[in-house]
Design a binder for these strands. Structure first.
Lengths: 119, 119
DNA sequence: TTGATATGTCCATATTATTGGAAATATAGA
DNA sequence: TCTATATTTCCAATAATATGGACATATCAA
């Protein structure tokens, strides 16, 4: 993962509404949630949420797909896994520190059930 | 780890100079580096760095200790480990996702040699 | 006590982020 | 087509953050 993308992810997750939205979407994997329902559940105006979702999307932490009139947002678990790997490999590896090899971080977030094909 | 502290950590790491400073300190574990040397190595004014180090310190990502005229900064590996755990447990755990249990993340950043007593 | 060194604090400026009203765009159904 | 619904974009006000010059504080050595 590039440093720029890691920083974009950190910036995205450093804002309360965005962190709440992301966690909400993680809890609603793999179906996702329409933007309007996220706004309702978090009790914030739809246009404010839209701005926050676009920040999350730019950081690639969420994916979206239009479904009829709604736009369904989903957490990008691969991306958050990459952020975790970045922290382990780029921020956590000191001369005097043993880290588990890169491969073993891959086991962190493995979907149990197949993701739907339509995203 | 509290959500507030996790967000403070994300905010701290989302700024290029601060991320560079933190990574530099990780690479210089466990001796740490004086503030002035960090400023020199990153080529930024000492007062600008001082402001950034105080953000990292407020997020508890770095620890400091005065040593004569210098103030030695060190990366707080326990804190970055806690951030990783936060991501795994709070952001990565969806209904359909298996994560390795909390304990196994502890093995990530284990110092090989004893830390010096004076911090 | 004086001078040099190391770092932090104060402050003003510049930049970026957040917020939400109003209008625009996209879709669906009658 | 017209209307309702879902979401985004535009825009302007406000708030937060970043930057670095000037000054303050802390330490040491002579």
């Amino acid at each position: 993962m590039k440093t720029e993308q890691a920083m974009a992810s950190f910036a995205a997750l450093s804002q309360p509404t965005r962190l709440a939205a992301f966690k909400l979407l993680v809890r609603h994997e793999p179906e996702g949630l329409p933007a309007g329902e996220i706004a309702t559940l978090l009790d914030i105006p739809h246009n404010t949420l839209s701005a926050h979702l676009s920040v999350l999307a730019r950081a690639e932490l969420v994916l979206s797909q239009r479904q009829s009139r709604s736009i369904i947002y989903r957490a990008n678990l691969d991306a958050i896994q990459a952020v975790i790997q970045f922290l382990v490999n780029d921020c956590c590896v000191a001369d005097s520190v043993t880290c588990t090899p890169l491969e073993s971080t891959r086991s962190f977030c493995q979907p149990q059930q197949k993701k739907p094909e339509n995203l």
